[in-house]
Design a protein around this nucleic acid. Structure first.
Lengths: 205, 205
DNA sequence: GACGACATACCGACCGGTCGGTATCCTCGC
DNA sequence: GCGAGGATACCGACCGGTCGGTATGTCGTC
């Protein structure tokens, strides 16, 4: 087995630590409000290390989207749906599960990482916008595909429009987590989740 | 009738100009990313004038919410609903109308002003959070009240849950406008609107 | 001794905010 | 009616601080 040219052990973990710390910082303060000084301090590294691994702040932000946010999204909403039998029930369970999980962990107060970046950065930087839009697109098409599969399988009623439903579901997720952030009310978040589940029920045959 | 101490005419219009310019600046760059220097330059006033009328940046932000965003919200979503006959049709028409209006005017690319502030500032400043939450609450309760009225009038089916539907509708609006901002795709926005209208149809008796 | 992986010191730009000063208007005694 | 005097509205130079970013030095490893 050929040994790949290997950087001294620390390099990868330093980069990783910076990335994770940046993710937290941007989640809490937004991208513009996030401070590189705070990031290096919290990560226990120096400015030199940060700029050794990332060209500039923007590149760091892109890397956070590509290497942290995307895997989170895939794991939560895409991978699971691919192997679900009844898509409507799977989606309902996903919404309920994740709402409760994020309430329990307290992470709901910071909102959805992807939505945060989307709202802040989409109009300001096309690199962000393109990355974020691509993720949402994969999300919507995963939902749409699952719904279309459900239609042929007979678990989704024939008159349902997969693209419309998928777009609404993604928009709802954005809105529900956004609601949680600004209302800081578990009740409202759960109400909205009930609403989504009712909508999904209305798609049954 | 006692004469209230009256400021010279110019004062009010200066304040108003600052407010409106600040609204645009925060809509484009966010609150944290918004620059007071740019605001005074664009408004054609000086730093002195700005800080004469507003204690600090935060107070300016609060005033934007109270005096600009709130009236916009009330006019779009609250006042109209109060005098609507069939609430479901009124809501469907509102969604469709506003989506098309914002696409036509180009303002959709900047997202919903209230949602922008909500996502950015809710976790960072409780003054913002409280104001924003109060507005969303009035919005939700206006929708809920209209739906409840529809239930007694027989235009909304009895098994519908007004709080759940209202929470979903508000969340959907957040998400739809957020979708527009990051996708910059009219198609996706319209699909999501179709989804909302389908949901509203499912609430009919 | 070359190179990758940092550390340190430092830069100019811009930030929100301050402050002394001025021009204009309002009030009120006369 | 009018002049003094205080309040209001505004000006713009300036402040300390933080920002993202850079130039250069150090040190262990191959």
């Amino acid at each position: 087995m050929p040994t790949v040219a290997r950087a001294p052990r620390a390099a990868d973990s330093t980069r990783e630590r910076i990335l994770r710390t940046a993710f937290r910082e941007f989640l809490r303060h937004g991208f513009q409000g996030g401070s590189l000084n705070r990031i290096v301090e919290a990560a226990g590294v120096t400015k030199g290390a940060l700029f050794h691994h990332f060209a500039d702040k923007r590149a760091l932000g892109y890397a956070v989207v590509d290497e942290i946010v995307e895997p989170l999204l895939m794991e939560r909403w895409v991978t699971r749906l691919e192997r679900a039998g009844d898509p409507l029930s799977a989606m309902q369970e996903a919404f309920r599960t994740y709402v409760e999980a994020d309430i329990a962990s307290g992470s709901w107060l910071h909102g959805c990482p992807l939505n945060n970046l989307a709202q802040e950065m989409s109009p300001l930087d096309d690199g962000f916008r393109a990355r974020i839009d691509a993720l949402y697109d994969r999300w919507r098409s995963a939902l749409g595909t699952a719904l279309a599969r459900g239609k042929t399988a007979g678990t989704v009623r024939a008159s349902a429009s997969p693209p419309a439903a998928a777009a609404l579901l993604v928009a709802s997720q954005m809105g529900i987590w956004g609601t949680g952030k600004s209302s800081q009310s578990q009740t409202v978040m759960r109400h909205a989740t009930d609403g989504v589940c009712a909508f999904l029920d209305s798609l049954r045959p």
